[in-house]
Nucleic acid binder design. Structure first.
Lengths: 197, 197
DNA sequence: AGTACATTATATCGATCGGTACAGAAGTCG
DNA sequence: CGACTTCTGTACCGATCGATATAATGTACT
């Protein structure tokens, strides 16, 4: 065991608490006072364990993407592109309307309405969203290759449409839309899906 | 003419400058220093002319909705529901990707990622978005009555789908999507439109 | 000219922001 | 038992937040 006074809190649990604060208030909207209160620790403990506010956010962002966001789950493994995208959107709807998590999507919350001080945070979020778009594009591309999408499908445009729907769902969820309402929107959105020839 | 020293700036022009700042940075992301600099006036002049930061934002919000946002333009007067909604979405895409205005939509920018201090601002934005949704719902409803939508169309769900697309377009635009990309997303989104019987 | 009055600019207010110095407390080592 | 190391709690740092007190400036009315 390491010498010195042992830590009186669980780092992972504190990080989960921090994630919830960032999730609901965004990067700049979450103050250190908010964070330390939610995490149940003092300020110096936070800085010793996580560095600074930006480092803490990056850690929370990793946890969010790997542990919560649908791009991390196996949506791409659904048998057809249609079912994969539908699963992706449904997963987003579930995540954004969870009863025990904040409404909306962290990747979208922090993307907008940000001051000058957090350029690197905005870039990190943009990179994460780009990664999601890339995963969607690859799955759509595979759908073309598998023959469950027309050969002349513009995979970039179609993936971006899915991304638009995803972001729109996140905003509506943050605005108070219910889980059922989001699901019915997905049902409509999937009607835009190209039919296989 | 009113007695006393005349104002050295144009109120409407200053308000337009303030709108641009709020539009790009959101309510909390825009500091009074940002605003006064963009407006070209000193702090006391701002407070004398507009009250406080929240009052200024509400004035800017009015200007945005009445002067910029597509819900204020005559999208509803297009002959069919399809063409009305398409016009609405295209108008959103144009607004969110304008070369001389900030990217994205003020109603969406400020809706998310907000601290505790601006509850009333969030409510005002939610009310504006609700008004847009209501206008969409009414136009869809008229489409059902006109017969260019099936009689069993769920107008609420369809309007909410349009709202989701609208919000998604705004987020993608804020993230850097080009005007053409947005337009192609709209082309795909409109494929979900119900066909008249 | 002189008074009244609204706007201007400077300088500053208390509160809060993210971030830390410092001393005491709680462990492992010898 | 100390010596050493790491964490905890308090109290505080300079910077910035939104908002103002105060006094100088410029216009209209008498």
């Amino acid at each position: 065991m390491r010498s010195g006074r042992p830590r009186a809190f669980d780092v992972d649990e504190a990080l989960r608490s921090a994630l919830k604060v960032f999730w609901s208030k965004g990067y700049e909207g979450a103050s250190m006072a908010d964070l330390t209160e939610a995490m149940g620790i003092n300020r110096p403990s936070l800085y010793a364990a996580f560095g600074n506010k930006e480092d803490l956010f990056m850690r929370a962002l990793d946890l969010y993407v790997q542990g919560f966001h649908s791009a991390g789950s196996g949506f791409a493994e659904e048998p057809t592109a249609y079912r994969a995208i539908e699963a992706f959107l449904r997963s987003t709807a579930l995540l954004c309307s969870g009863p025990s998590t904040p409404r909306g999507c962290l990747l979208v919350q922090g993307a907008l309405a940000v001051g000058d001080s957090s350029e690197s945070v905005r870039e990190a979020l943009a990179a994460r969203r780009a990664a999601v778009l890339d995963a969607l594009t690859q799955r759509v591309q595979r759908g073309v290759e598998d023959g469950d999408l027309p050969a002349d499908t513009d995979v970039t445009d179609l993936a971006q449409y899915v991304m638009v729907t995803n972001n729109g769902l996140a905003v509506q969820a943050a605005g108070g839309a219910t889980r059922d309402e989001l699901f019915r929107c997905i049902d409509i959105a999937m009607r835009a899906w190209p039919t296989a020839r």
